[in-house]
Design a protein around this nucleic acid. Structure first.
Length: 633
DNA sequence: GCAAGGTC
């Protein structure tokens, strides 16, 4: 035996961290089959840690069932998927097999969640094939900090097959229903020669399709919205303390006009009530992935997919912590003061940081905890120059946001005075609302949505105010806007569609499939996406309703709790979806007919748009050419 | 050519 212990982590960064926490200065870096690994002394023996890259194995159907044209998609419900090696994962298998020969004890240091447990079972499967006498121990830690790691390596657990089986069952169910529904939809339009370009298909998925439904639902709500006229009477009042504007709303034009003449003829009003209430605005809770993505969309003008990609780069280069996390509370073992101290000379916030360090601070705390990763926080203070030079301007936006969000979570509340005055003129009531910022608090370092002063004068009940001006405005109620990405992310979270790491992908998949587009930060269905969502809803609503994913999840939890066997539950879930499949299959002609229409619109329009765009491009190129030539002369 | 979930 060469190694007393071989430690397998879910990713390289964790393998490296474990080595440094356990091995101190004895760590030696090496490569096994091209995979980075770390040798060190621990527990009186030479040990080695290595990271895989998430899952190593995946489910797929046996080859003969992947011939779309000769296999009835319905058959997939009766075929057991097999485990295959993931693309690019073979080097990890080779490395693990090699290490299996060089130790007798393997410590499974994967993330503390069901996916991590599933990966642990993949590792065990691979390694025990190479060496059946291996002993496996599970290290369970909820943060990659020295304290948590040392604690986890004192008290090992047993691998928990129920947890792993929950993940494996989800994989099997998702593959089966995804593949069967995607195939029946795709084949139905292909049979009709339905404008589907080569290599494209019509996909269905238990996450992507409910996401589409949410986007389409909003479009239908807009269309069904009944606009209504209403009337706002705005009155400018003068008091000894200052001028302010109150308003009253009417549904009816004649009543509004009547009110206007009353206001004009009386010409003054009495303060019926006045309120000046201070309220605290709490700083945001510690940052998780979905919140970062939604703030990216709202404040930084970045798409969720882009935000996450940038965050990953910043993480890989040591500027921020691991960006895929649900957690919104700092683990007690994270040294916030050390991180804060790094920022005492940063971007004009130095004075603020020094004040916090001097006065002391208490971090905000959210409710979510994925038990695997801490919230996202900066791990290094870096200048704008440095970040822009290395990763570009967009990366600076993300880094600066992470840093400022972190500082905000340690900051004091902002204090706002909310103001409200009601003025009576005869029997009419006019309301005025205002606000005054009393103390900026965390907004001093978090300049993204700073409340603005819009104060009212300080008046007492019974005071008389004079009418300076009265204006009647006709307005129309407006339909809701198309969904924004930030709203969609919030809805996905509410319904439990996708995970922190995958939500942006489900949005992206729909865009890729031409089911909806993003325009001015709003999500607009294409005729194809709309047809798909509507016709599925009309045939089998269960396939598109957003609750579907949450219901699957709560069933799968029973596997993790050991209340039901995975085989039994997978069988039950597949039977349910088979009945949906049969319902859809009965109506597939009708559905396909509509889908062909949608495809026609999407792909033909794209063609004409593309030729349009290329013509435009050509002419602009011509223009550029001429200006360049001019410059030369 | 399918999904969703890890990770890069």
């Amino acid at each position: 035996m060469i190694y007393g212990y071989v430690i397998v982590a879910e990713k390289n960064s964790v393998a490296r961290a474990i080595a440094s926490f356990l091995g101190g200065t004895s760590v030696k870096r090496l490569q096994i089959e091209g995979v980075p690994a770390y040798e060190f002394n621990w527990n009186n023996s030479r040990s080695l840690s290595i990271g895989v890259s998430g899952h190593i194995l995946n489910f797929d159907f046996p080859k003969e069932y992947n011939k779309w044209n000769s296999i009835d998609p319905r058959q997939l419900f009766f075929i057991k998927p097999i485990l295959v090696t993931r693309e690019g994962a073979y080097k990890y298998i080779k490395a693990l097999r090699q290490l299996a020969q060089k130790t007798s004890t393997v410590i499974l240091a994967l993330d503390a969640d069901v996916e991590g447990e599933a990966i642990a079972f993949e590792v065990m499967r691979i390694m025990s094939q190479a060496n059946p006498s291996l002993e496996f121990k599970r290290a369970w830690f909820s943060a990659i900090t020295r304290t948590d790691i040392l604690e986890a390596f004192k008290n090992f657990r047993k691998p928990n097959e129920n947890l792993a089986n929950k993940a494996f069952s989800r994989m099997i169910v998702d593959l089966t229903i995804g593949a069967s529904f995607t195939r029946i939809l795709t084949l139905s339009v292909e049979k009709r020669n339905g404008f589907l370009p080569k290599g494209k298909f019509l996909s269905y998925g238990p996450c992507q399709t409910p996401v589409l439904y949410l986007v389409v639902k909003r479009e239908l709500e807009r269309e069904n919205f009944k606009k209504k006229k209403y009337y706002v009477l705005r009155v400018k009042f003068e008091s000894p303390e200052g001028v302010f504007t109150g308003h009253a709303t009417f549904d009816d034009a004649s009543k509004a006009n009547e009110a206007l003449s009353v206001v004009k003829s009386i010409g003054k009003g009495i303060v019926a009530s006045s309120e000046y209430v201070t309220v605290n605005i709490q700083p945001p809770v510690p940052l998780n992935t979905v919140y970062l993505e939604s703030r990216g969309s709202l404040f930084l003008n970045l798409r969720p997919k882009e935000t996450l990609a940038i965050a990953e780069t910043l993480y890989a280069n040591g500027y921020i912590s691991y960006p895929r996390t649900e957690t919104t509370r700092y683990p007690p073992t994270l040294n916030l003061k050390n991180i804060l101290s790094m920022f005492s000379e940063w971007e004009n916030t130095g004075w603020y940081v020094k004040k916090l360090l001097l006065k002391g601070f208490k971090p905000t705390e959210g409710r979510e905890d994925d038990k695997a990763h801490p919230p996202i926080y900066p791990t290094k203070a870096a200048s704008k120059n440095e970040i822009v030079r290395k990763f570009g301007e967009k990366a600076w936006r993300v880094y600066e946001y992470v840093a400022r969000h972190f500082l905000a979570t340690l900051s004091e509340d902002a204090i706002i005075e909310k103001q409200k005055i009601i003025v009576n003129i005869d029997k009419l009531q006019f309301q005025a609302e205002g606000r005054k910022v009393v103390y900026l608090g965390f907004y001093q370092v978090y300049p993204y949505s700073v409340p603005q002063d819009d104060p009212l004068p300080y008046l007492l009940k019974g005071e008389e105010v004079r009418v300076l001006e009265a204006k009647l405005e006709e307005r129309t109620t407006q339909p809701p806007q198309y969904l924004s990405e930030a709203e969609l992310l919030a809805l996905m979270k509410k319904y439990g569609i996708g995970t922190d790491a995958t939500m942006q992908e489900h949005i992206h998949t729909n865009i890729e499939r031409k089911y909806f587009i993003v325009k001015n930060k709003r999500l607009i269905p294409t005729p194809l996406g709309r047809t798909l969502a509507v016709s599925l809803y009309e045939t089998v609503p269960e396939l598109v309703l957003p609750e579907i994913r949450g219901r699957m999840e709560s069933k799968l939890v029973k596997i993790a709790n050991g209340e039901v066997s995975p085989e039994e539950l997978v069988q039950e879930m597949l039977e349910e979806f088979l009945s949906y499949y049969d319902k859809l299959a009965q109506n597939i002609d009708k559905v396909a007919e509509k889908l062909v229409e949608g495809l026609k619109k999407v792909y033909q329009e794209e063609d004409s748009e593309a030729s349009h765009a290329s013509a435009k491009k050509k002419s602009s190129m011509k223009r550029r050419k001429t200006t360049r030539q001019r410059k030369k002369i």
